[in-house]
Design a protein around this nucleic acid. Structure first.
Lengths: 203, 203
DNA sequence: CTTATCTTGAACCGATTGGTTCAAGATGTG
DNA sequence: CACATCTTGAACCAATCGGTTCAAGATAAG
């Protein structure tokens, strides 16, 4: 028919994603998005939608991209549970080590900001976090853990994974991040080796 | 001399603290502080300082208040290491369970927002986080762990403690939060029982 | 009551917020 | 070229942002 799109939607969304990822929702203005994407203010509203919509798209983009990598890492859980979870944390650690990407985690950041987010965005954030729990729980059961242990470790691993974002932003070294996940991986292989004994005793 | 202060500084600072704690730095305006404290806009600037200063005061207030409780919890580390750390996490869990206080953790929130904070506030946030690490490291050594293990568990415990804030904001149940710390406490008592063997093997 | 201090409300500042509208220009197709 | 689409810059809106100033009022000590 006529003039095609002159900007790359993927590139623009990636730029917006990095902006939100670095500064968070509240500290990112539409002008910031305009600067980051190189798109005009009006183009953002006509092509990407309002701030909330852009943020939701970025959340989905982030979740889809890294969710796939997490799935891949966990795919060998049935055969080698500890190795699978070492790979799982490796996805996060690699992302943190990438100098082109912001530290932290967009999901964790959004979770912290939930009380200030619109109901739409808040609900979506919780949904994405729930997905990760399901993913982890399935992998742990595939690895031979019983239902209770799988639930325990799933929420623990999810929490530790989120904490890497906080600690990296606080200036933790790669060695320190490795130490954080090391304790968890050790506990996991212990539980994996002795599947009969409940690994968590609160007494 | 003349007219005394007519507002309670402690009450006002507590109100400001809760506001920052709930909404974070970026999502809190000076008007929000005015509403929360009940103080007039001009009174805030004359009595509490500008936004950055008020935030710094709240950070200190938060750190002092809960830091003391953490110290108290860890005081029995030399005698009963696992019990001390169960009490340590208990401080955080009790705070989360308190319906009058916001979920999450002001320090963790500030750490996530570091890229958007002023250098002054960012540096202070890192400082406060460093204090907690030192506190944990000392307790772990007092409990009999060697230097390497103490460093490993100190950063792990600090990370897990921060993660409780994220997970609670994301809607995690008290049982799930208990499961998160349960894995860590189990790994710790394991290491405490076998102090010779390094509890973290990355192979 | 006088006086010195504290507190208040309100106005003001320039800048920025999220969001909308529109006319002009760029683009590539037919 | 003519046409339809896409993109742009700019202006505009009401609202809010952080920050400052100041005169009026409240307060309690002397």
């Amino acid at each position: 028919m006529a003039g095609r799109k002159q900007f790359d939607m993927d590139t623009a969304l990636d730029a917006a994603l990095v902006q939100f990822w670095r500064a968070g929702y509240a500290a990112t203005s539409v002008d910031d998005l305009s600067r980051a994407t190189g798109l005009n203010r009006s183009s953002i509203y006509s092509s990407l939608g309002d701030k909330d919509t852009v943020f939701l798209r970025c959340l989905d983009r982030y979740a889809t991209r890294y969710g796939g990598r997490y799935d891949e890492a966990l795919s060998c859980a049935a055969a080698e549970l500890p190795a699978a979870f070492r790979a799982f944390f490796g996805v996060t650690l690699d992302r943190i080590a990438d100098p082109e990407l912001p530290d932290g985690c967009l999901i964790a950041q959004s979770a912290m900001a939930i009380p200030t987010l619109s109901p739409r965005v808040a609900a979506h954030t919780k949904e994405v976090l729930g997905f990760q729990y399901v993913r982890l729980h399935a992998a742990l059961k595939a690895g031979g853990l019983n239902d209770h242990d799988a639930g325990t470790f799933a929420v623990h691993v999810a929490a530790v994974n989120q904490s890497l974002a906080v600690m990296s932003r606080a200036g933790a070294s790669p060695e320190q991040l490795l130490a954080i996940v090391g304790v968890t991986l050790d506990a996991l292989s212990q539980a994996s080796r002795a599947p009969g004994r409940p690994p968590v005793r609160s007494g």
